[in-house]
């Protein structure tokens, strides 16, 4: 649907992306020439079993890892050529991350965990507003150790969106959660995608989640094996596993 968009409008354009890394004595080919795009406002689910290369792809898109070969451009800028400092700035101002294990700072409250990002961002949201968006207005002063897993993950989402990022990258956001709380987290992500129009990439090995995506990218053994469009997106509420 967005294939005609201006190249600069494309959030990510990935061409021939290859990643080889050494694990001890063994060479692992994590990505073997991946091509893909992410368009503004789009919600993409990257689906694949473990070892398919989806995390590696997400890490490279997020500026956490470097490619062995190929190109990734973010809004027309070549990420594969960026240096350490530029990557840090890129993560700081443009990307919102959500991780499987939340990665909250244990010594900071929910509100402060969001503030830790808004303090260094350019035109961030109010941290309270970000938490309201994920339905945590009443838990602002709780420390991570006082929050449930689902609540912690929603804090992480609030933290990710609070900087008004161009793109939201989520690595198995429900991986550590049960179905019920997982759905609440997905609702929060869906809500953000709808209301703020933030391009969102979610990686998961849970095929059920694919229903809520605009597009589903299937990865296997370092290749993209299939890309499918969902004509009708499922509401997260209708997803169970």
């Amino acid at each position: 649907m967005n294939t005609m968009a201006n190249r600069d409008d494309i959030v990510f354009q990935v061409r021939g992306l290859t990643k080889v890394y050494r694990m001890g004595e063994v060479e692992v080919h994590a990505l073997r020439g991946v091509d893909m795009e992410l368009y503004p406002g789009e919600l993409v689910v990257l689906l694949g079993p473990s070892g398919s290369g989806k995390s590696t792809l997400l890490n490279i898109l997020g500026g956490l890892d470097t490619a062995s070969d190929g190109h990734v451009s973010y809004r027309g800028k070549d990420l594969t050529r960026a240096n350490e400092k530029e990557l840090t700035e890129y993560r700081r101002y443009h990307v919102g991350f959500v991780f499987q294990f939340y990665n909250l700072i244990p010594s900071l409250t929910a509100l402060e965990n969001v503030a830790v990002v808004t303090e260094i961002a350019v035109s961030p949201m109010d941290p309270g507003d970000a938490l309201a968006l994920v339905g945590l207005s009443t838990r602002l002063d709780h420390f991570p150790s006082q929050l449930s897993g689902g609540e912690q993950q929603r804090v992480a989402i609030a933290r990710a969106i609070s900087k008004n990022p161009s793109v939201l990258l989520c690595d198995e956001p429900t991986g550590a959660l049960d179905s019920e709380t997982g759905v609440m987290v997905l609702e929060a992500l869906d809500n953000v995608n709808r209301t703020l129009g933030t391009a969102t990439a979610i990686i998961t090995h849970n095929a059920d989640i694919a229903g809520m995506a605009d597009r589903v990218v299937h990865l296997s053994n370092g290749h993209i094996t299939d890309v499918s469009q969902n004509e009708v997106k499922k509401s997260p509420r209708d997803i169970t596993w």
């Binding site: 840090t88 993560r91 991350f97 990665n103 909250l104 700072i105």
Partner: peptide, 9 residues
């Protein structure tokens, strides 16, 4: 985690 969130060294 903070580095990932864009904090510098």
């Amino acid at each position: 985690s903070l580095r990932v969130l864009g904090y510098t060294r």
